[in-house]
Design a protein around this nucleic acid. Sequence first.
DNA 1: GCCGTTTTCGGCCCGACTGTTTTCAGTCG
Length: 579
Amino acid sequence: MRNIEVAQILREIGILLEIKGENRFRVLAYQEAARKIENWPEAVETLAEEGKLREISGIGEGLSTKIEEYLRTGKIDFLEELTKEIPRELIRLTEIPGVGPKIVRQIYSELGIVNIEQLEQAIQEHLLQNLPGLGIKSEEKIRKGIDIIKKSTGRMLLGDALPLAEEVVIFLRENTQIKKISTAGSLRRMKETIGDIDILASTVDANRMMEAFINLPMVKQIIAHGTTKSSILTYEGVQIDLRVVDNQSFGAALQYFTGSKEHNVKLREYALKKGYKINEYGIYRIDDGERRGGEKEEDIYQILGMEWIPPEMREDQGEIEAALQKRLPILVDVKDIQGDLHVHSDWSDGLVSIEEMAKAAAQKGYQYIAICDHSQGLAVASGLTPEQIQQRKKEIIHWNNNHAEIFVLEGIEANILSDGTIDLPDEVLVQLPIVVAGIHTGLGQATEKINQRLEKAFKNPYVQIISHPTGRLINKRDATQGDLALLFKYAQQTTTALEMNAQPERLDLKDIDARQASEKYQIKLVVSTDSHDTLSLNLMRLGVAQARRAWLTKNDILNTYDKDQLLQTLHKKRDRLII
DNA sequence: GCCGTTTTCGGCCCGACTGTTTTCAGTCG
Ligand SMILES: Nc1nc2c(ncn2[C@H]2C[C@H](O)[C@@H](COP(=O)(O)OP(=O)(O)OP(=O)(O)O)O2)c(=O)[nH]1
Ligand SMILES: [Mg+2]
Ligand SMILES: [Mg+2]
Ligand SMILES: [Zn+2]
């Protein structure tokens, strides 16, 4: 998959064109194409080979030619020429908050600045404040911007952002007179990483609310402070945006502030075609200028003849078209989840006993929980030998004989060895009602090797679920080199389910891949927390959110089934493959 | 640079905050 790489190149061309002062819609075309390719579930090189690039809306004659050239030669002539005029280094400067293409162009052409060090030097010598359109304050603002970008740690994990947002919301509730409040932006859409925390509120006194906000104890710096919108930076380097509107506009504002940007643009374009105008204050008829709604978020979609679209779907990935046809799927909900099929106990590297895990799971209202400890191939995680599995079995039987509130399933997270065999013999696997298998070592192997390993694992009749299929760790480790399309084919052929691991830094399979697995290959998925302690069981919420972002329904997720149905489904494979 | 159940040319969302500005451009959400 070279999608990210190609998207990156297109994005760079877009920014360079913007600095050059090109037509902004031409710039937009590059940005939009980049986004489309980044979110495309198939490999861009495959599309190019098959001559299908132009089937992506937003990629036409010019862009497809450039993309093909890049994939073939590793270069784009047009870009080579462009960088002679606009150095590539300048792109980094546009990443400074408050510094855009116009300022970069100006400091480059007037002062010859191409990097942050030179910019800092120029600021120290107060060279910027004498440039037309800039002054003392702009210079200071840019200096602060450089501070921010230097300390910036990139996008946060959703799992880290959620509690922080909750803390801010609670503080605002306690210290201001709030009518309504909600998180918005990527956080409400439950995107796997979060750029900043967006909060929307309606209140009796907007000014007081803003005062309270910018005086939060966590505030390091005030980025903007207006009557309806303020932004602050916390000591941890997290930006928080607060938008305040009247109660009667809360719905329209929530729609706006939830985004995504691309969803908003598409929605607003469609509205225009139908004679309406949408902004964060409401939806208006263009002919008479009358406001037609906006108190509730549903107003906006309903007036346009659409179903209300769940926030997780608002990525301009076909949801607007589906909502118009009233064909949105009924997304899986946390309440549908009947059990967790991947948790560890202190028999391996878990921190709590089977009993504690079972009690906690029962508390969550689950019907069943599968204890899937590591197996012997993973010694660092105290993986279980066949003998230990026998021992553990007694404890599980004992629990089930004495407790009706939840059924504990005996399971394993077996290790896929570097030759693709499972680290436990079939005689052991056949005894286990739940068999998950995953790659934990040799993640850096070449494509061919990973593919072969997985093929072998998928073909093992006892392996029901592949855990964390790509092995990626967000912001830390890339997915393995395994070919996802091939992996999906194996899963389809062998009716093996794939896990959507809910650990905040895994979320693996990820949303767009899970959607592809389900839509194109009819693969079933399992949302699991991979808990090593009881608190982590709550991560189910994150995993289900990713499933919702993958457009999945209850029927697509095996751990929404009741116990009998689940076991029947999971055991079909061994019944079919062993005659 | 892309696109088209009204278009193959003329559109391509809409508004807040900041700083520098005598009326608005730049940046960002
Ligand atoms: N209509 C419109 N809405 C926008 C635009 N930019 C941002 N928004 C809305 C939708 C976004 O989800 C919301 C919050 O903006 P953010 O920049 O914080 O983006 P978002 O939270 O989606 O992603 P993030 O994780 O913060 O990078 O504001 C825009 O250009 N037009
Ligand atoms: Mg945001
Ligand atoms: Mg924001
Ligand atoms: Zn694992």
